[in-house]
Design a protein around this nucleic acid. Structure first.
Length: 632
DNA sequence: ATAGGGTTAG
């Protein structure tokens, strides 16, 4: 038995035998991290003579202090000292070390302490799992969780709440389901932390109904669980549902915090509901919340997606502190508005300031900004820099995609084609699609037909590809091929998301679908579009029938074209909106070139500013001229 | 002693 004690801890073990816990008054050791500088040994020694529990308590206090201040150096000293002094530090002290190391981003050290533990309990397992999941190592977290189960340790509510945050991706979700049944078996489903984590897991996997089920089953609610379900809807693009739920929960007495507002702003950005967004902004200002970067970032994004970049910039400029997301949101804003020069300028400022490191999203924003802003050489220059690896950011396939877009948009189709061939990645449908679009705009029939044939093979469900391909054949007079492609399309293509446009007037969103029959003022709107068409035709407008997906006669095509949802929304705006404000229309898909022409004509004939936001970018039209320079 | 929701891009 004696052999088990090493010489450092002999005095210690003696105490353990002679004194029981109850012989000590609950003295709190008066220790802080200052003791570490030289006095540590002495202080601990003194405490050791008061009893072994005291020395443990001393280490515990010291480590807690280090955890709170993230003082890794001091923590390491305490650790070293502890190893020298104590034989077998109790599990809770080792767990403190695990927490310290994970908080200070030293996962390796944490894992080392964990693996060296002679006996582990739920808390130490959970601390280690939480360390991995918080640092973004979901796989390791899950792996450890499975090992925990095998070891026979029962997880508790802490374990479940933390491990579920790592259940992302397809394989994570499968495990998440199994963990859910475990949770039910052990009766933790109604626990508010576990429940929030669980519903968030389902929401992030796109299973919003199951998430809602968990939420509705919670016996109590708090800010976090409410925010989790609201943001679940918002992240899936179910913006209206998110807002509706938010309103209802607020009525039912939910308290909101800055995270809730950030999620609500995400939903409002998606809808470009500027009036509502301003309301939330005002509300947030009235609350006099402390500064939260996350909230400010979502405000920047909301204003930019509502077309109000100046507001975004104002918020950006007065922020006392910015994260990479703040910069990215601002850069993406400029990029989507086609303001290439501003993108490059802000990027330059970011590097000069050198407080925040650009990440891969930054480069995506800058490259696409150059692409939309016609800054081809600048874009290529930045991409070259990336590839050389000077920035510490690996060029990913999306960055290559930006370059294809950059070249193709500028009419350098052959170059873009060669670029794709030389990529270190297998080109995706998105990449070919970008090139095909360029072939259409710049009438490159040879490359276009090649790419189009390829695309309908790897993405047979996308109707757009068939249409472009058949139009390319048509322009080459290859009518037999046109017929074949059309047949193929009828066979295989699935109608994807239906087109939808909306316009905000007096805090109400008016939504139109193509050939919409649901809006109360539909008749008026249809007649307005007709009237506009006749008027514009007199001035030389020719409908661009190549935008029509269906294989019907020309008259039918024109009818379909006139019923495009963005035309309906614009006409409605023209009827209803005050002349002082721009007609602000949002479309869920890409806007077609015929509607783009139409918008320019509205602007020209009625002296109205038109602002169109489609899936990719903004079009600000003033006096018949579009900010995209017809370059999109 | 260990725990849940959030902002950019796709």
């Amino acid at each position: 038995m004696k052999l088990l004690y090493n010489h450092h801890s002999i005095f210690f073990s003696l105490f353990t035998r002679q004194l029981s816990l109850s012989s000590f008054p609950p003295l709190k050791p008066n220790l802080n991290s200052q003791c570490i500088n030289g006095h540590l040994q002495e202080s601990l020694l003194q405490m050791a003579f008061k009893g072994p529990e005291m020395i443990f308590d001393g280490y515990n206090t010291l480590l807690n202090d280090c955890v709170n201040r993230k003082a890794i150096r001091e923590g390491q000293r305490v650790h070293a000292h502890m190893i020298k002094t104590c034989y077998l530090p109790p599990p809770y002290l080792r767990t403190r070390l695990i927490v310290l190391y994970t908080k200070c981003d030293c996962l390796g050290d944490a894992r080392h302490v964990f693996e060296e533990m002679p006996e582990r309990n739920v808390v130490s397992w959970t601390a280690m799992i939480s360390g991995y999941s918080q640092r973004g190592f979901g796989f390791e977290a899950l792996h450890l969780f499975v090992r925990m189960l095998r070891s026979g340790t029962e997880p508790n509510e802490f374990t479940f709440a933390t491990v579920l945050t790592s259940c992302t991706g397809a394989s994570g979700f499968e495990l998440g389901r199994q963990i859910h049944s475990l949770i039910i078996k052990q009766n933790y489903e109604a626990h508010i932390f576990v429940g929030s984590s669980l519903l968030d897991m389902y929401a992030k996997a796109g299973k919003i109904l199951e998430a809602r089920g968990v939420f509705d089953g919670l016996p109590e609610r708090d800010v976090v669980s409410c925010t989790a379900i609201i943001s679940g809807y918002a992240q899936l693009g179910l913006d209206e549902e998110a807002l509706e739920l938010f309103r209802r929960l607020e009525k039912e007495g939910m308290s909101s915090n800055y995270v809730t507002y950030a999620s609500v702003l995400t939903a409002l950005s998606g809808l470009a509901a500027l009036d509502h967004g301003k309301q939330v902004h005002n509300h947030v200002l009235r609350c006099e919340l402390p500064f939260y970067v996350v909230l400010q970032n979502s405000l920047i994004d909301m204003y930019s997606k509502c077309g109000n970049l100046n507001y975004s910039r104002r918020i950006f400029d007065i922020m006392p502190e910015r994260t990479v997301i703040s910069w990215n949101a601002m850069l993406v804003g400029y990029s989507k508005h086609g303001m290439g020069r501003e993108v490059v300028e802000l990027f330059k400022l970011m590097r000069e300031e050198n407080r925040v490191k650009p990440d891969s999203v930054t480069f995506l924003a800058v490259l696409s900004g150059c692409s939309h802003g016609r800054l081809v050489d600048k874009g290529l220059e930045i991409f070259d820099e990336m590839v050389k690896g000077n920035n510490g950011i690996q060029a990913e396939i999306e960055h290559y995609g930006c370059v294809v877009d950059l070249l193709g948009r500028a009419g350098r189709v052959e170059e873009a084609f060669e670029f794709i061939k030389g990529m270190p990645f297998e080109p995706t449908a998105a990449i070919w699609g970008s090139l095909l679009g360029a072939c259409r705009v710049h009438s490159n029939i040879d490359i276009g037909t090649f790419v189009g044939q390829r695309l309908v093979q790897i993405e047979p469900e996308n109707a757009g590809n068939y249409v472009i391909l058949s139009n390319l054949y048509a322009s080459a007079g290859r009518w037999e091929d046109v017929r074949k492609v059309r047949e193929l399309m009828m066979d295989k293509a699935v109608m994807k998301e239906p087109g939808r446009s909306w316009i905000e007037l007096d805090q109400t969103l008016h939504t139109f679908h193509a050939s919409d029959r649901s809006h109360p003022r539909r008749e008026e709107v249809f007649w307005k579009v007709r009237e506009l068409s006749i008027k514009f035709k007199e001035a030389g407008y020719v409908p661009d029938l190549s935008c029509v997906l269906y294989d019907v006669d020309e008259e039918q095509k024109e009818k379909i074209l006139l019923a495009h949802s963005e035309k309906l929304a614009m006409a409605f705006g023209l009827i209803v909106a005050s002349e002082r404000v721009p007609i602000r229309v949002i479309k869920n898909l890409r806007i077609c070139s015929d509607c783009h022409n139409f918008a320019k004509l509205i602007s020209k004939f009625y002296g109205r500013d038109v602002s169109l936001r489609d899936k990719n970018r903004f079009h600000h039209i003033v006096g018949g001229i579009c900010s995209c320079g017809d370059y999109w």
